[in-house]
Write a protein that binds this DNA or RNA. Structure first.
Length: 609
RNA sequence: GGUUGUGUAGCUCAACUGGAUAGAGCAUCUGACUACGAAUCAGAAGGUUUAAGGUUCGACUCCUUACACGACCA
């Protein structure tokens, strides 16, 4: 027998009760809000009657009373209710909580879920592409990219868990003047240095030359100004810049030597990126390179001109007028026929659609591109692309430092690799100080430090709503206690420890040992079951809102409930066998659920810590 | 100048999209390791939600106006 979703059971019953109370048409089960009861009142779920009191022709309290009586009589899950100022608080029968727990723990239930999910995959599952990371190849990844990478990875995993078919895509910006700047600096000052010869990671090496470019460029500009040029003039005529521009022209013409250097330097960067991606635990299904897509955009321009959506100005440049959408006129192709950013994006969007068949596409990009993304979507709508409506810009705010905004030129950038390394050092120090790693091999311990470091970092960056700017204080921000990743990881390790000890003592989490016999729960047990069955709702909400922060919040609250439970309810020492089995089942469910929730955020769940 | 985002406890963030006395963590103070892990738990203190109006049974949330900070578009 299947135990249905408690939330759905209650909603269905409430809908029927509203109908019986004369609310016509009664709202559908998913059309009203059923919220957790505030903890100062008795009950678990609360229904607000104000919106329906008029239709029922009674006071809110009167309606609440009638609904409560109807539910108590007709819904087995509801054991009692109370009414406070128009709020109907529902209390759930302990027997129902036990049934819910048994259903959660049933392995058959899970395989069933998997099967329905697989068959859904075959037929009507939604296909989504999540584009994230999307770095430039002229500098290594920094703190801002980490927020992007973690967000993108988590959103993709959450959508997948919610039943979608997801393609993780990475669009690499590998061409343009910025690469040429690194190249020209390398030609000038590199003396044939390579990652191997210098012992530097490839992306750091190339980033180094980008910085060198800027340094020498500034000197040249100063020099020219001293010779009497205006600042503006000097900035335009500095030889390094004109050389870089010349290099870009040669690259576009396909000059063999230039393309060769470009390819070599980019390959160094990719090796470096690979290492970083592996180190921070993110992955991709598909890579796109702007050097391969930037020409595709021009076909879209032709298409737009043919459809009359775009127009050509007398100088030959191509534009679109988006004033009707509240935007401006936007340049799509320069008078000399070269493309601009948005041109490439049109091409890439089309390519992604052809490759994956996804009508829905999530772009994880910083909020400085809000306008750009609005324009992109508006243009695709005008072109009547089937994927235009499915574009969603997951916009996130910058990560600021106490000193202000990160600026690569001023050297105030927090490098991703360095930050992770520092975090690992902190995790190592903290763990060793607590003396928790006795019995682990060196390799196991090091793996643990990485898991903890990344857990802290990812949780810290993901628990905040994406669109908010956030402050990162390297000295203080990352903590291992309180509302943190390691707190959740600790709870998992603690629960695993109890399960291991139980197994050593021959105790099992057998649901048949308590399924019919235990009929009363204490407050911490009830709260924990309620949290556990909230997992699916949390995933659904997070998927709909593209909000990993909801999963972080859920994992934290589950961990909190678990620790409270363990403080109040002895497990292994519990003398009553049935209750002991129930509590062991709870412990087991906490570990698997925490593991899944953390997994969605890309955070590992250690066996011990 | 135009468009847009943000503003909540000393600090970093929540608030189920209009619901009850605005909640957590850090920092501060108090208590709990001879019960399974104290990276934990229990408790105290901390608020005119930037300001002023408005909408209604009810506003951090929606609408005006102003202020502060940011981003983008000329």
């Amino acid at each position: 027998m299947n135990t249905p979703d408690l939330d759905l059971t209650l909603r269905t019953a409430l809908s029927a009760a509203l109908d019986a109370a004369g609310v016509r048409p009664a709202p559908a089960p998913d059309a009203f809000s059923l919220q957790p009861t505030r903890k100062e009142f008795a009950g678990t779920y609360t229904f607000v009657t104000f919106p329906y009191a008029k239709a029922a022709g009674t006071s809110p309290d009167g309606l609440a009373q009638r609904l409560g009586e109807h539910l108590a009589a007709n819904c087995a899950a509801v054991s009692d209710f109370n009414v406070v100022k128009g709020f109907l608080n529902l209390e759930i029968a302990d027997g129902e909580w036990v049934r819910q727990l048994v259903a959660l723990a049933k392995p058959t239930k899970q395989t069933e879920q998997l099967e329905t999910r697989n068959s859904k995959l075959e037929t009507q599952a939604e296909r989504v592409v999540v584009e994230y990371s999307s770095p430039n190849t002229n500098k290594p990844l920094h703190l801002g990219h980490l927020r992007n990478n973690f967000l993108g990875y988590a959103v993709a995993e959450i959508l997948r868990e919610n039943g979608a078919i997801v393609t993780k895509a990475n669009l690499i910006n590998d061409r343009g003047i910025h690469i040429c700047k690194s190249m020209i600096a390398y030609e000038r000052f590199g003396h044939g240095e390579t990652p191997t010869s210098s012992g530097q990671k490839g992306d750091h090496l190339v980033g180094h030359y980008y910085v060198l470019f800027d340094k020498h460029y500034c000197e040249e500009v100063q020099q020219l100004q001293n010779e009497g040029l205006t600042e503006e003039e000097a900035k335009k005529r500095a030889p390094l810049l004109t050389d870089a521009q010349e290099l870009l022209r040669k690259w576009e013409e396909g000059d063999a030597e230039t393309v060769d250097l470009w390819r070599t330097m980019n390959s160094w960067v990719y090796d470096g990126f690979d290492a970083t991606y592996r180190s921070i635990g993110v992955d991709f299904d598909k890579f796109y390179y702007e050097s391969e897509t930037y020409l595709l955009g021009k076909e879209r321009v032709e298409e737009g001109l043919a459809k009359g959506v775009f127009f050509r100005k007398p100088d030959g440049s191509v534009w679109i007028d988006l004033t009707a959408e509240g935007l401006d006129e936007k340049l799509l192709l320069r008078a000399d026929g070269t493309s601009v950013y948005i041109t490439q994006d049109l091409g890439t969007a089309e390519l992604k659609y052809q490759d994956t068949g996804c009508r829905r596409s999530v772009y994880v990009i910083g909020d400085e591109q809000n306008y750009h993304m609005q324009v992109l979507q508006a243009i695709l709508k005008r072109l009547e692309k089937p994927y235009a409506d499915g574009i969603h810009h997951l916009s996130y705010g910058m990560v600021d430092l106490p000193s202000g905004r990160m600026k690569s030129r001023e050297g105030t950038v927090v490098d991703a690799d360095e930050l992770v390394a520092e975090m690992i050092d902190t995790a190592r120090a903290t763990t060793q100080e607590l003396g928790k790693v006795d019995g682990l091999t060196e390799a196991e311990a090091e793996a643990l430090y990485r898991t903890l470091a990344l857990g802290a970092l990812k949780f810290f960056l993901l628990k905040v709503e994406p669109k908010k700017r956030m402050l990162f204080n390297p000295a203080e921000s990352i903590d291992f206690r309180g509302h943190t990743g390691p707190f959740v990881q600790y709870t998992h390790a603690r629960s695993r420890s109890i399960s291991r000890k139980a197994a050593e003592q021959g105790l099992t989490a057998d649901t048949t040992a308590f399924a019919g016999t235990v009929t009363e729960l204490n407050a911490s047990e009830r709260e924990l079951v309620a949290q556990l069955i909230g997992y699916r709702a949390a995933v659904r909400a997070a998927a709909n809102a593209l909000a990993p922060s909801l999963i972080a919040q859920y994992a934290y609250e589950l961990a909190k409930a678990s620790n409270r439970f363990l403080a109040e309810s002895p497990v292994l020492i519990e003398p009553d066998a049935a209750r002991r089995a129930l509590r062991l089942t709870l412990v087991g469910q906490v570990t698997t659920t925490l593991q899944r929730a953390l997994g969605l955020l890309g955070i590992g769940a250690p066996e011990r810590m």
